[in-house]
Amino acid sequence: MLYAVFMCAVLIVLAAMWRGSRASLPLFLATLAAVAGYLVSDMTTPLNLSF
C-alpha cells in the first residue's frame, strides 16, 4: 500500500504539472524526499525489507 501511495503522489504531481499549478514542483520535491527517505530507512533499519 505504501508503494501505491508513492505512485498516487506521482499522479498528483503529474496532474498539478498539467494544470500549471505552482504547487507541482514542491509536490514533486516532497514526493522525491519521501521516496528517498524510505529508501534510506530501508537501508538503515535492522528489519531488512528487501534483499
Binding site: M7, V10, V13, F28, L32, V35, Y38, S50
Partner: peptide, 24 residues
Amino acid sequence: PCPLCTLQRIGLMLCALGPIYLLI
C-alpha cells in the same frame, strides 16, 4: 517485483516527470 524493484519503478516514473514538464 520485489520492494526494491518497485522503488526503482517509482524512480522511473519520477524521472519521466522531467521531460513531461518540458512538454507541458
